[in-house]
Design a protein around this nucleic acid. Sequence first.
DNA 1: TTTCTTATCGACATTTTTGTCAGTAGCGCT
DNA 2: AGCGCTACTGACAAAAATGTCGATAAGAAA
Lengths: 203, 203
Amino acid sequence: MSIRKNTQPRIRRTPEESRANILASAERLLTEQGPQTLRLADVAKEAGVANATVLHHFGTIDGVHTALMERMIAELVEKVMAIELTEDTEVSRAQALTTLFEAFEQKQASKLAAWLELTHQAGRLTNVRQVVRDVTRTKFHHQNVPEDVVEDVMLVCITLALGVGLFGQTLSEMLGKPPSRAKEMALSVLMLGLRQLEAERKG
Amino acid sequence: MSIRKNTQPRIRRTPEESRANILASAERLLTEQGPQTLRLADVAKEAGVANATVLHHFGTIDGVHTALMERMIAELVEKVMAIELTEDTEVSRAQALTTLFEAFEQKQASKLAAWLELTHQAGRLTNVRQVVRDVTRTKFHHQNVPEDVVEDVMLVCITLALGVGLFGQTLSEMLGKPPSRAKEMALSVLMLGLRQLEAERKG
DNA sequence: TTTCTTATCGACATTTTTGTCAGTAGCGCT
DNA sequence: AGCGCTACTGACAAAAATGTCGATAAGAAA
């Protein structure tokens, strides 16, 4: 006489699918609830699996954290590298900047960056320099501007994009303005500032 | 026959001193080790007191968090309000911006802000709007610029200051540049951009 | 000195979170 | 159908973190 536990039928995924499912849930938690909800039980529940299943695929909860960081970093890098800047007109530059801002906003890449910074894990971003170098060469090589000037400019753009991505919406709303106001203002100031910087270099 | 435990002599502080000591330790932990080290045992150890002592003064570990947030917020507000901008020349404006950047950098105010944002506690910053209003009125009332334009400008400045404060150093170093490079570049671009914005408004 | 208040502490209790393990069940293969 | 592999699970164990409590001692006041 066997006792029949009324459990749900199991969903059996490929290891890749299962890992992807768990990481997607973790990412949702990170961006919607904050890093402190990235606990074993929370992640497992969000993913709809048992705690032990998470550990089966990632070893420890820290393994989940690491894998999540790497996944999000890869996503972001891909997005940034995909930004088009074939010709450097005002219009195309504005578009590129807008895309950059959105890359740091969507998928909460800025939150990831802040998380890394606060947890002193920014060292994981080992390829930032390489990415910036690649972008400098591939997108700006047709300009006659020294590479380290381009890098300095990208430094400001990224810093501002991160600031806007992380704080823009909250700050805008705190001041009783539409949530995209910070982004818009940042874009304006950046465009004008960069134009002037360029003019100064030439003049 | 009494057993003499070899314990350190107790340090007895006033409640205010004790709270201050604990909060200072917590702040040190937050900025040097990250938010996840703001645990009861960590804070107590850093402050050199027993766990129970921390709870005696703050009730729960969350009480410590709250008190710390409030303390750091008050500090920051004080610093921002102290920024001088009597006359709006290029030089005085540059000084004011530099001071603003440093206010968000020192004492790790940007880390506090990121912590609040990530933990969805930004609502604690209830007086941001009031501070911005006050600054607008007291520091800019001599200008003939509409108040909400001033507010928009301050929005960009704060966003950028937060971005620089949180990510500036790390990003600069990742690109193989001196740690203050992001701040310097941000200042340049901001100054030029604001000047242009002003010119456009007038023209 | 003696008394009183209370900041402080160690020991313990409770709760939360992580990790282990042996057995179960889905699925492809023969 | 039967077999083998392994993703999956619940139950349990271990560790970590928070919080409670009675006793102690530092300092002020009588």
